[in-house]
Design a protein around this nucleic acid. Sequence first.
RNA 1: GGGGGUGUAGCUCAAUUGGUUAGAGCGCUGCCCUGUCACGGCAGAGGUUACGGGUUCGAGCCCCGCCACUCCCGCCA
Length: 599
Amino acid sequence: MKRTHHCNELRPAHIGRNATLSGWVHSRRDLGGLIFIDIRDREGRTQTVFDPSDLPKELFDRAAALRSECVVSVSGPVRTRPPGSNNPKIPTGEIEIAATSLEVLNMAAVLPFPVDDPEVAKTVNEELRLQYRYLDLRRPEMVRNLRLRSKVATASRVYFDAQGFLDVETPTLFKSTPEGAREFLVPSRMHPGKFYALPQSPQQFKQILMVGGVEKYFQMARCYRDEDLRADRQPEFTQIDLEMSFIEREDIYTLIEGLLKQIWKTALDRDIPTPFPRLSFQEALNRYGIDKPDTRYGLELADFTGEFRASAFKIFSGAIAAGGVIKVLNAKGLADATQGQIETMTEYAKSLGAKGLAYIKVEKGEWKSPIVRFFSEAEKAALAQRLKIEEGDLILFAADQWLTACEILGKIRGYCADVLKSSGKLIIDPNRFDFLWVVDFPLLALDKEQNRWYSSHHPFTAPVAEDIPLLSTDPKKVRGQHYDIVVNGVELGGGSIRIHQPELQKLVFEQVLQIPPEMVQARFGYLLEAFRYGAPPHGGIALGFDRLIAILCGAPSIRDVIAFPKTAKGADLMTDSPAGVEARQLRDLYLEVKVAKKD
RNA sequence: GGGGGUGUAGCUCAAUUGGUUAGAGCGCUGCCCUGUCACGGCAGAGGUUACGGGUUCGAGCCCCGCCACUCCCGCCA
């Protein structure tokens, strides 16, 4: 070993002993006759001193020639610092190493950006950080994120092992199942013209594992989706994936609550209260306008359909007559919203199909609004009372079909919260975590363009038993045994109890989803076949591991908790991938590229 | 595919809104400095203002195009 201690280990108790530290030159302070070099490794940093009166000139000159991020091994006695020169900012600040030898393990070129200064480093252009990711990863903040990620992964494995789960790996060379996310395709050399697909999740394999009698499966599963990226979405990402046999929804809730309790304890030493609150999909939409509500702040939606049913304001009464509802949001303290902000909110409404956005600004004791003159005194009184309208409020209305009206104000609620946060009017404790389960999702949603039903989760989700008869009569009313786990408005994961009866699964595919029988056979025939030979009732869930770690780290993007993430265009700036391939490779795969080369 | 933001020295940012030779701090190079820890002092080098066009007497600044990064919408069963 080129080291006897790490750089966050030596204390006054070690004084007098010889030590060897290895690491990077964190900073060098050359006083001319005396040189201080801070050695940094993963654990921390320690000061070493090079004193020319004790050292050969050659050794001192080599120390003088070092620069930031050179890799060195320094040996010498641990000694106390002169009185008054301790550094209380670092844990090793009471001691130093009086260097007697220096081995330069590697020199470092002048750096493209500083890694020693946390203030500068965190403002460095992310493009540069990604290009020189190995330098970025040396920053203590990134080390901390990777360490926390590793700790949480281990805690999860320990937890599942203790609960009797088997860690089973599933293939990443799968086959294409065109429903759902766009897939990455892998051409097969041995089967000309045929392709594997990288799995968007191990969904079907884990169900087959249940048929295979595994009973309790889990995996830190890598998943791939060829969709556009976001701060919380990468083309390859990791899920804590699990499946269990002979269970009901409640078993999953208990299991995951226990897991998250364990994780929060491990990562943050925090005790989170369980069980988590449960919210039906309908209640989530009614109160928050979204199926993954952030309940750390209020701004709840109210329903005024009753009050406006007979309103003289035809836009409202007309919407109700057409089967719609009136939803209202009191954005407290936002009467000073700018024209641009109102416009942004209006655009949200329009993007969901509304014609516009009605609002009232409560300023100087007056209701300023283009529509308020159409309201009766009773209607105004009802608004004032139920919304507790005060000076400075901004009242926003959505008149539409129930789901649309809720979603419009849900988006606006989120936007208003952002505006209030940035103006300091809304302060959220960064240590607060609001977990909740969202349950009773509709099993199906209607594709208006194609006029057919599609699975709101996925086609393997079991209907709530008592709703099964509705599948053929009123599909819209069928609830799925699906559940989402949400924290602070982030969808952390989701899962469901699955269909395990081949007849029901076939019915969903063919009768409800209208997939032609031959296509069902080609894509899911093996699954239906498997179900014929004794498939146990089963269900599971998958948690977004990267999102989980980002929340624990307080990171704004999952890129900060992934060692080598990709840019918004799916590129790796360090390795410069994706990249072209040799003509011969294409020939081996029977592929022809028809797009003109850009470079 | 669409909308917003950003791009000036190695890094982080200025440049009085179109006006002389594009500046500062850090970093880098050289010299000085024996208790620093953001060490200090002196001197110096370093620029195709992402890139390509255009308008103008004159463009870092305005216009068009394009590239990269980023946030969002669509998309993500």
